[in-house]
Amino acid sequence: MFRMISSPHTHSGKLTAQVMLWVVFAMCPAILVQWFYFGYGSLIQILLAVGFAIFLEWCVTLLRKKTTMFYLSDFSVVVTALILAVAIPPYAPYWVILIGTFCAVILGKHVYGGLGQNLFNPAMIGYVVLLIAFPLQMTTWLPPLSLLHEPPSFTDSLYLIFQNHTTDGFSLLQLVNSIDGITQATPLDAAKTGLKNTALTHVTATPIFTPFGGLGWWQVNLAFLLGGIFLIWKKVIHWQIPVAMLSAFGLLATITWIIAPEQFLSPWTHLFSGAMMIGAFFIATDPVTASITIKGKIVFGILVGSLVYIIRFYGNYPDGIAFAILLSNIGVPLIDHYTRPRVYGR
């Protein structure tokens, strides 16, 4: 008798746990870069998210009367928690990451029956809930540490996350406004909101912008790009989705930028800003919620890239990765249906 197991199914002989551990390993360089540029907040958020996610997974397995270690040992919940933790502002209040992790693990994963049966990417479910419910907390980013007069220490980071102020009594908003009011947002958000009041050249002249993109942001995205290439080399993910997504977005962004360079950021700034690289290599390639056929992966990647372009250039949200991936997840069954390979002999 064959053993019946749930998806995701891989044809490389690797167990799900091995695949997830490779993903965690590939994310480590970007996590270290994020810690270097934005401080200890990212590491604290990761500890909170991973710890709470494991606790929730344990509780659900007990309620469903399942083998606890069997579900915990696949490390899928750890990957979900990691993605969510690095996506939110490093110094967001502790309850933000706890609520997001709950929504990701419970609403995004276990209400569908667990790993392999969820329709949407769990981490993006948690992120979108937070973005809609708590827009202020989710859009208040501390500038890179090199721009701060007094970067928060580890103790200050704990105080900011759990008590909303540093040991000296400074709130996050006060730290943000100590440089320039525009630096409280990501470079993408700064460009989108700043263009309503001033020219693009004035916006990009602020300290958070460099010739390569947002300070700290392009370095983090570069680290995710290298981690994604590593995953392709290890055959953990396929190249079709990230290449199709980045190509579709890059082509559309380039055409728009050529037509109106004074109104939009350059394509390379967009490609190395926000969650573009983690979205392309670590989120859109989720083997459960993405297309499974070769042609379908290309169509899925193009769809995600096109939706990100529409949201970033013409929508109200500056990034759009989460919304684009969730909307594309809806179309996966239809994409797979029309891109099925022809059966041999027919």
Rank of each mutant, 00 (worst) to 15 (best):
residue 335 I to P: 07
residue 202 H to M: 06
residue 202 H to D: 15
residue 39 G to E: 09
residue 275 A to W: 08
residue 261 P to V: 04
residue 261 P to K: 08
residue 125 I to C: 02
residue 59 C to A: 13
residue 333 P to V: 04
residue 139 T to W: 00
residue 135 P to W: 00
residue 46 I to Y: 08
residue 163 Q to Y: 11
residue 269 T to R: 10
residue 34 Q to C: 08
residue 109 K to R: 15
residue 211 P to R: 02
residue 287 P to I: 07
residue 181 G to W: 05
residue 150 E to R: 12
residue 315 G to K: 05
residue 146 S to N: 13
residue 339 T to S: 12
residue 175 L to N: 07
residue 52 F to L: 10
residue 162 F to C: 01
residue 63 L to V: 14
residue 103 C to T: 15
residue 232 I to Q: 09
residue 133 A to C: 15
residue 170 F to H: 13
residue 254 T to C: 09
residue 134 F to E: 04
residue 199 A to P: 00
residue 314 Y to N: 06
residue 298 I to M: 12
residue 252 L to G: 02
residue 14 K to W: 08
residue 29 P to F: 00
residue 103 C to L: 14
residue 282 F to K: 09
residue 223 A to K: 06
residue 286 D to A: 01
residue 226 L to M: 14
residue 259 I to N: 02
residue 244 A to T: 09
residue 98 L to S: 12
residue 334 L to V: 12
residue 1 M to R: 13
residue 131 L to G: 08
residue 38 F to W: 15
residue 339 T to E: 11
residue 333 P to Y: 01
residue 32 L to P: 05
residue 230 F to Q: 04
residue 2 F to G: 00
residue 65 K to S: 09
residue 268 W to K: 01
residue 250 G to D: 07
residue 236 V to D: 08
residue 189 D to V: 01
residue 216 G to T: 12
residue 239 W to F: 03
residue 151 P to F: 04
residue 192 K to L: 06
residue 100 G to F: 05
residue 105 V to A: 02
residue 7 S to Y: 08
residue 75 F to E: 09
residue 182 I to A: 14
residue 169 G to F: 11
residue 4 M to H: 13
residue 275 A to I: 01
residue 183 T to V: 15
residue 73 S to C: 12
residue 218 W to D: 03
residue 66 K to V: 00
residue 107 L to V: 03
residue 56 L to V: 08
residue 149 H to S: 13
residue 108 G to M: 05
residue 312 R to C: 08
residue 153 S to F: 03
residue 52 F to A: 03
residue 165 H to N: 13
residue 314 Y to W: 14
residue 108 G to R: 06
residue 115 L to S: 07
residue 313 F to C: 01
residue 177 N to W: 11
residue 290 A to D: 03
residue 197 N to C: 03
residue 4 M to N: 11
residue 22 W to F: 15
residue 105 V to K: 06
residue 4 M to I: 13
residue 198 T to H: 10
residue 11 H to R: 11
residue 259 I to L: 14
residue 78 V to N: 04
residue 302 I to N: 06
residue 92 A to H: 10
residue 281 F to V: 06
residue 9 H to W: 11
residue 55 F to P: 03
residue 86 V to M: 12
residue 30 A to V: 10
residue 322 A to G: 06
residue 143 P to Q: 11
residue 115 L to G: 04
residue 47 L to S: 12
residue 1 M to G: 07
residue 71 Y to T: 10
residue 237 I to R: 08
residue 38 F to R: 07
residue 228 G to S: 07
residue 338 Y to S: 02
residue 47 L to P: 01
residue 144 P to W: 11
residue 302 I to R: 05
residue 173 L to F: 12
residue 251 L to T: 14
residue 73 S to V: 00
residue 5 I to D: 10
residue 122 P to L: 08
residue 247 S to K: 03
residue 183 T to Q: 10
residue 182 I to T: 13
residue 180 D to E: 10
residue 16 T to V: 12
residue 81 A to C: 05
residue 332 V to H: 05
residue 4 M to K: 14
residue 252 L to A: 09
residue 345 G to W: 13
residue 29 P to D: 04
residue 317 Y to N: 05
residue 92 A to S: 14
residue 119 L to R: 12
residue 210 T to R: 05
residue 118 N to I: 05
residue 82 L to T: 06
residue 74 D to Q: 11
residue 331 G to P: 00
residue 172 L to D: 10
residue 125 I to Y: 02
residue 84 L to F: 07
residue 202 H to T: 10
